[in-house]
Design a protein around this nucleic acid. Structure first.
Ligand SMILES: [Mn+2]
Ligand SMILES: [Mn+2]
Ligand SMILES: [Mn+2]
Ligand SMILES: [Mn+2]
Lengths: 220, 220
DNA sequence: GTTTCTATTTTGATTAGTCAAAATAAATCT
DNA sequence: AGATTTATTTTGACTAATCAAAATAGAAAC
């Protein structure tokens, strides 16, 4: 049985290898897990002897097929729980991440399947994050972000990839939630800022780095 | 923050001191937690220095006011979760105990309150076990059991105090669930057996020790 | 009132996970 | 190429929780 710590390490290796290179560095991993680098090294070596990751010392770590299977299970639980908390318990989509962070380790397959059915087998969670299927398929569609998309094209926000409460509350405040319509009106590389028009002609200004966490698709 | 182990120790001290004497012995406690006696001693000494229990060496352990507060919180979470699993997820009342055993340590006050509201602030869980209130009040009404009640009186089963899957499945099989009507027709002390009549004139025979786990109230 | 039994406690070890700080290897700069 | 910077690994130590087995203290039996 994977411990809570093991599940967290594997999940974070998966998340960090998603949007980036193949090997996850110890630095990134340690930062994501809020441990010192030496701790991450020690744990990764243990995971490697368990066959859950392969470790290229001094360069980084990558999931094995088995490690990926476990990580996808954790991620599926996390995202289904988040969806449940928002859809059934009517919690705010800006606050469910921390809850799911604990519950993802405590829920059985039976309960997970029932939640999934109750929710109608959702494809994405409240942040627009794709939910891995029971069989371990994870949608990897690539979207543009508000930082990279075209100017003046009509857009729909599909995903917000940043879990911190402050960021999500900022997004919510300005209507930047999955499903919302938006249009980039101006992008200023020098100032690293951009302006967008939302519904009802609401104007929002945000930094390029924040914009990079908001994924969008062209409308129609 | 109380760890999972600490929560489990406190909860079991509470449960064992409910139906019995005041002091819980190390033997009972160790058995309930499935650890060796020495482990229970070590942990109890640690809990005592934390002010959560008072330990009378060689005699037993009892909760302090603070320990009781924590234990009631765990018990409330456990029983609300069980109720949720049965009422909302339609799981079987014979299988939810093990699930709740883990989830009780992973759920926040926010989620707990939402579940409680969703369920309509239930007073008892699917086994008839009373749910401690938010303020830490635990109904301590004393009921007769099938082993101690009068013969030929009409009864209603109010509670089944034994969490093992086998026992509960046996109970379910014979209609011995909370709310069911029953009447003891015969009790044989020598053979340590008793017979009862259920709805539809169904006859059930069970041992006195099993009967002691089924609490009943007189009907009207 | 000793002896015997039994539950409890103590002792010594182990595992999982972590940090602080020293050692080292790779990359970068001159 | 040699020196410097930076990330990673190693080492040594610690906490929480556990077990096996020896020591001990009450209770019960004689
Ligand atoms: Mn987690
Ligand atoms: Mn999410
Ligand atoms: Mn538990
Ligand atoms: Mn119960």
């Amino acid at each position: 049985m994977a411990t809570i710590a093991v599940e967290n390490y594997l999940k974070h290796v998966l998340l960090l290898s998603e949007g980036g290179d193949d090997l996850v560095s110890m630095g990134e991993l340690a930062a994501a897990l809020a441990v010192v680098p030496g701790t991450a090294t020690t744990m990764v070596k243990a995971l490697a002897t368990e066959g859950l990751v392969s470790h290229r010392p001094r360069y980084g770590v990558r999931l094995t097929a088995e490690g990926r299977r476990v990580a996808l299970g954790v991620l599926r639980r996390h995202r289904i729980i988040e969806t449940f908390l928002v859809e059934v318990l009517k919690m705010d989509w800006t606050e469910v991440h921390a809850e799911a962070e604990l519950l993802e380790h405590a829920i059985s397959d039976t309960v997970l399947d029932r939640l999934d059915a109750l929710l109608g087998h959702p494809a994405t969670d409240p942040h627009g994050d794709p939910i891995p299927t029971r069989l371990g398929k994870l949608d990897s569609q690539v979207y543009a972000t508000l930082a990279t998309c075209g100017i003046d094209k009509p857009l729909r926000i599909v995903r917000v990839t940043e879990q911190s409460g402050e960021f999500l509350q900022f997004a919510e405040q300005h209507g930047l939630r999955p499903g919302a319509k938006a249009r980039v009106t101006e992008r200023n590389l020098a100032a690293s800022l951009l302006t967008l028009k939302m519904d009802r002609d609401r104007t929002v200004t945000l930094s390029l780095s924040a914009a990079g966490h908001i994924l969008v698709a062209p409308v129609k």
